[in-house]
Write a protein that binds this DNA or RNA. Structure first.
Lengths: 224, 224
DNA sequence: CAGTGTGAATTTCTTCACAGCG
DNA sequence: CGCTGTGAAGAAATTCACACTG
């Protein structure tokens, strides 16, 4: 199929998907690259090239079929089935994420919440029971969990990551200030809010503006 | 000074800072680009070029002075003073952020929490009283707030952003699925967790791995 | 003829490789 | 001698511009 899709392209796909869904709910059935690019805040030529790279074709003189866009981009992203998620760390952030219904709606149901605190274990947060690390093996097996989110204190983040990796989790989203070591075959993305604030701080002190958070240019972020 | 610092460079600075601080607390006083680059997970040549672009000099044959690195990078990022932050939206995520002590420690004290809910107003979260939108004008003035974080439901995110902009906030960190419109002189970075999960999903279904979150290309993704 | 798909130009970012300094 | 600083090469990403097609 597509021998390789660049990270830059992958990073834009969620924006295209969102834009297409938005236009779809507005009743539009067809859209030009120019319009879609505007909604997704990218350059029209980038959009056309990205879609062409993915063999997602439009119609010359007309544009792209919105429903087709949604289904094809979803397919490329692997959103044609659910990805149950395990959250490690039932502190403030972990709880907040577990309580947010949006993930399940978007295909990422919270399947498990792991924490070491005896006080938290067996309590329910957002409809999910908090369980000890020992429960992870069964959970992963039963629910077929492949994606993990780490929201522990930074001091134990590496431990949490190792735990997930040991149980076969292949993709990790890390909200810790610490950037963990992971085996090369594991995908780990780190989102550090302090890093974001520091970048904002940079822009605040200069006049000008810039953009993007969840980009692919991503670059590493983290800070402590 | 520096006529222009590229976004790619700015995106890496927090990682350099973090790495330098880490080495500093370990007692190291000098560091080579190779070592620092390893800790920061970047290529040594990128690191050297980034620092040189910022007129942050090392010593040939020796390396960079760790304390000097910390102070200069902090200076470039504008971290030589505090940046009080206002959070709009005291829901799960807003509360979680307000309760996290790490922001104040890193120079971003939570100065205010804004919400429209009558039940929440006047309650205290993480040492900060929740206040109605009307209170924003005074707060911004008194506390000299320049940075805002939006953690409202997506439906009212644009409203929240407009409110912040109307009160002179110049930099916004948006955790909403909706990418808001902002005037061109305002910096807005969006972190959408569902977008992150979608990118992870992509990598999960292919064998391969990739990295990082809050990048500029990076990372985080979302944009405007 | 409107708008995609794409070679080619351009810009940006990364990496090499080494001259030169402390 | 070791490591920075950087010119030059290379790679990647973006954008232009237009041939081509539905």
């Amino acid at each position: 199929m597509d021998p390789a899709v660049s990270d830059a392209t992958v990073g834009r796909l969620p924006a295209y998907l969102r834009a297409a869904i938005e236009l779809g709910t507005k009743g539009e059935t067809s859209v030009s690259s120019e319009r879609l690019a505007e909604v997704a805040s990218v350059h029209p030529a980038s959009l056309r090239r990205d879609l062409a790279n993915l063999d997602i074709a439009g119609t010359r003189g007309v544009g792209y079929d919105v429903k087709y866009l949604v289904s094809q981009i979803s397919l490329v992203l692997g959103l044609n089935h659910e990805w149950p998620v395990v959250i490690v760390g039932a502190g403030n952030l972990g709880k907040a994420l577990a309580n947010y219904p949006g993930f399940a709606e978007r295909g990422f149901p919270i399947a498990a919440l792991i924490d070491v605190s005896a006080e938290l274990i067996r309590t329910r947060i957002g409809g999910v029971e908090v369980q000890p690390p020992e429960a992870l093996a069964d959970l992963v097996e039963e629910r077929d969990i492949v994606v993990g989110i780490v929201t522990t204190p930074p001091e134990v983040a590496q431990e949490a990551v190792d735990l997930l990796v040991a149980h076969g989790i292949r993709s990790i989203l890390n909200f810790t200030a610490l950037v963990p070591e992971v085996p090369p075959d594991i995908t780990c993305r780190s989102v550090d809010i302090a890093t974001e604030l520091q970048i904002l701080s940079f822009h605040s002190q200069r006049g000008r503006a810039a953009s993007s958070g969840t980009g692919v240019p991503l670059g590493l972020r983290a800070d402590e």
